[in-house]
Nucleic acid binder design. Structure first.
Lengths: 211, 211
DNA sequence: TCATCATCATACCGGTCGGTCTGAAACCTG
DNA sequence: CAGGTTTCAGACCGACCGGTATGATGATGA
């Protein structure tokens, strides 16, 4: 559910060799440009210009553009694991934690000026049918999101926050779909309120059940 | 909510000049390749090879790749208007008609082998931030979908099929989000059941209210 | 201090890109 | 039938693409 927040945490700044710092800088820049402009619309030259790193250097650290793409996706996988742990460890009822995740991600969409959207979603639609290796890695991020959501929704069901007939796995898929689709509408309409609409409607329906 | 069904209707086969037939053939081929491979990953050469039309000819009918892109988006706009009219004119309660739209589109996803996804969604994520003209046209398709859904959801609310507190416009946005996000998951996971999960979860929550 | 390794830089490569230019062929109308 | 228009074909263009080869520089350790 990320919107490409770039933390120093992953790009560990302590105890790194000079080469490692260069590698992380390439990775960070590639990540940003793939996110904002798309993988196929981002050239190696673009990355060089933005990062101020020379081509021989880039190719020393990453043997190809494709390998760089894999590394970018891997960085999302690692970062998502950490983010999900933090969000889901917070106090509150299961549904409160679900909505908190949505709300914190929604705020970031707004801060981002409705640009970029979700990097995983962007990669998913652009590359799924043309690069099976990328598709598998993207799936692992979606699986991580859906699995964690499913766990929370099971708790919510046990707590009576959801109708007994609800399938938590299916609902987790639907919630990820709401997020990704909502991000798409926000990005295309340039209107951050749309994600508010989506989340509010979802809550409204879920909570109408409990009324 | 289309999944790139190519009808003969738009590509009018009667009463056309030879040049017009060539133009439609270019358009149809470009549409298919932009849909399956993305706009930036589709070259003019790809279109020439697939359509068996020569470059001078293509550039006679479309002055640039960008103009071809516009024409492709315009063809979706026209086709969507017709499809929505047919689907929403069918008999049944408002919510039945909503679910029928989802189900017919879902079947097509399955028939397509979970490839391609939604052409509008693909364009939206790939091009929204790098081509404002394309973004505006894509928005008109989303607006058409959301407006029609909103109308149906107003009827559903009046008929007692939805909680009184529901905002039809917001719910329409959420439903389009469910569709686009679901298509993304189907395309990435290559599992057509996921859209079934999304729709079932949506129905389950809506119908739990009425129980 | 020197050798080795890691890191960095730049010229160059073949291929592909979107697009242009020029001319040929087909069609249509007077 | 001829002239004009529409449609078509293909060679060529400059720019850009991902990547390689070669060599220079900096860092490290014996």
């Amino acid at each position: 559910m990320i919107t490409n927040r770039l933390t120093g945490q992953f790009f560990g700044e302590a105890m790194s060799s000079k080469g490692e710092l260069t590698k992380q800088k390439v990775l960070k820049t590639a990540r940003e440009l793939f996110y904002l402009n798309g993988y196929n619309n981002t050239s190696i030259e673009d990355i060089l210009k933005t990062s101020k790193i020379k081509k021989g250097n880039l190719y020393f650290h990453f043997s190809s553009k494709e390998k760089l793409g894999y590394a970018v996706l891997e960085s999302y996988l690692i970062e998502e694991a950490q983010l999900l742990d933090r969000i889901f460890a917070a106090p509150g009822s299961p549904m409160e934690r679900v909505y908190r995740l949505f709300d914190s991600s929604r705020k970031h969409l707004r801060e981002q000026g409705c640009r970029g959207g979700c990097p995983i979603g962007n990669f998913a639609l652009e590359m799924s049918d043309i690069h099976n290796g990328f598709r598998k890695k993207i799936n692992r991020v979606f699986d991580a999101w859906c699995d964690r959501l499913e766990k929370l929704l099971r708790e919510a069901k046990r707590a009576g926050e959801l109708p007994p007939s609800i399938n938590p796995k299916a609902l987790a898929n639907m919630m990820v779909a709401v997020w990704e689709g909502g991000v798409m509408l926000v990005k295309t309409r340039k209107d951050p309120r749309i994600m508010g609409d989506c989340i509010k409607s979802l809550r409204g329906i879920v909570e109408a059940y409990r009324a």
